[in-house]
Amino acid sequence: MDLGTIIWNTIALFLTVCIFSFLYKDNPFYKFAEHLVVGVSAGYFAIILFYNGFVPKVWIPVTTRGEWWYLLPAILGVMTWTRFSKKWAWISRFSIAFYMGIAVGVALPLEMQQRVVKQLHATMLPVHFMDIQGFWNLLIILGVLCGLVYFFFSVEHKGAVGGAARLGIWILMIGFGAGFGLTVMGRISLLADRIQFMREWYLMVTQALWGA
């Protein structure tokens, strides 16, 4: 085990403990770690975007392959910088609008496809009483219908609509409870990972110091 590895791992351990210290209360160690993670990650993203965005997608195509049209998005990008000037800030809207247009255009059919039509198809289930699944199918269909009724906005939730909406919110709450219960174990395993890291650090250091 070389000294460099021990030092780096000790730094990692120190930072881990700094973050965990939050569980006691807000303190200088946590504040230090918090500002460090924000600063490091902001710098990290700046560099990643430079090397994975600008260099391969603008610099190399334009300078080595002569694909000048890659300058167009660069110009759109530079246009966002007009935000620095009060007078010219409106120019940045062109870039934002272009970005929004692409995003909305991609999202529109995808939302319809994945979240409406596919879900509808999956919910059109046969209802029968030959086996228990046929009955469960009925419950799924009724659950989806009542859940959808809850999302009616232009109708008052009274009478039959109110009853269905109430049943709908119960179904949603059962779903939330299930989601919550399911996540608990996953979150605890994350903690186990960090504890494992601390244990490994302890073993590494004791081995380096005493060879045990």
Binding site: L139, F151, G175
Partner: peptide, 21 residues
């Protein structure tokens, strides 16, 4: 997970998608 949770999830998904569209 497969009956009430699935039904609730689908209702939210369809509603939210319509809102998003």
């Amino acid at each position: 997970m497969n009956v009430p949770q699935l039904a609730g999830k689908r209702a939210i998904m369809i509603g939210a998608a319509l809102g998003a569209i």
